[in-house]
Design a protein around this nucleic acid. Structure first.
Lengths: 214, 214
DNA sequence: TGTACATCAGTGAACGCGCGTTCACTGATGTAC
DNA sequence: TGTACATCAGTGAACGCGCGTTCACTGATGTAC
């Protein structure tokens, strides 16, 4: 063996420390929550010195951004999967929403870091903005396909935003205990999510038709 | 003058330190944001020693809870005001939503503390739960009044939750830059909020009528 | 009305802690010749 | 193929910091008699 090794049998040069640090951060988030996510803790979890991360990230914020980006990526994949397994256009939007909320419940700490970073920058991460195949566009195209041709682009856009906002709100409040009785009556959490989310995706034209003016 | 006074001319006994601490916390939130809100900073801002708050709050968490409670109270008042100035039932829900989001934009740090506390306890604060005249009930009764009599209670409840979630989502994302072009096209931020929020308050029965099945 | 005394609500110094970041350093690697 | 050397990616100790909380204390207040 030509390389020196630490006690953990890891070579002096890590090889892919950047990725290892992001993974370590995710592990800390899953196990101990966002408040435990310090640079030092991440280095510790990855088995390197507290100074090592500075060779890969400018500062703590840059590490958090990398973690958040990985999270948005995973969330986008979960949404894509939901979309592809739901050919029925009427149900598709709801299923994407359910997948969204379920992701947030499966990775609550990661989810919080994702939005904390977004808030700091006042925008969703690049990969999720207005690009083709982004999570945002998937939602919008789902509405586009579902809505009648009489619905204007701007209304599709607004419905997309409303749905995204509602899904985020649900993600944050789904665990509130005051919803428990309602959940029981609706066949558990998934039924509850589906029921709330099915209230979305309406359009002003449809509203006028259904309820009449004011 | 019989009382000794500190350099700031304040008597040794404060008189209403509990309230003063909560006010100081709010000032810190407004001026420096949530990350600056430490117990020591609050004591400093109130002009007392770091140990003084412990005569009024068990620990930092209890102070935060008091701050959050005051915030929920103020938000409830803003929503009530919006409701009372909007007699038209068709517009009322949207106006309450606008008031909600505008409150969150006027006091972003306070708003975050409010939800951080709620998340920790997995519930909205007592005063906002299912009690008569709570903010939650105001929203629900607004839907109740607006919906036709054929709409079931459970659907009213679900619409209320969906609306609350969407308003919260909007509150968190309203400042995202990617919405700026859309805002311009809709006459500014308020127009944007109104447009997004008007997508809420639909009911499955209405949906079926308007769009037909899937 | 005075006085002794319990209680309340402050003080200020100190505790240990973990943090983000920097520093001089060194082991390992890659490359030019 | 060997070697000198620049560069890369680690180390570990140290920096100053602000934090939450505790402690023994003391000034002020209220109350029983």
């Amino acid at each position: 063996m030509r390389e020196a090794a630490t006690v953990e049998n890891r070579p002096y040069h890590h090889g892919d420390l950047r990725r290892a640090l992001v993974d370590a951060a995710r592990r800390i988030l899953e196990n101990e929550g966002p408040s435990a996510l310090s640079l030092r803790a991440v280095a510790r979890e990855a088995g390197v010195s507290p100074a090592a991360p500075y060779h890969h990230f400018k500062d703590k914020g840059e590490l958090l951004e990398a973690v958040a980006f990985v999270g948005w990526d995973a969330l986008g994949e979960a949404m894509t999967a939901a979309k592809e397994r739901t050919p029925d256009l009427g149900a598709r939007m709801t299923e994407i929403g359910v997948a969204y909320v379920q992701f947030s419940q499966a990775h609550p700490a990661l989810y919080r870091v994702m939005y904390d970073c977004s808030r700091d920058k006042d925008e969703l991460p690049e990969g999720l903005q207005d690009k083709e195949d982004s999570a945002y566009c998937q939602v919008r195209e789902t509405f586009r396909a579902f809505a009648g041709p009489e619905v204007a682009d701007v209304d599709i856009e607004l419905a997309t935003i409303a749905a995204w906002c509602a899904a985020h709100g649900l993600a944050e409040m789904n665990s509130f205990k005051q919803f428990d009785p309602l959940k029981q009556g609706l066949g558990g959490e998934e039924g509850f999510l589906r029921a709330v989310l099915s209230h979305l995706g309406m359009f002003p034209a449809a509203r006028a038709k259904a309820n009449g003016p004011g």
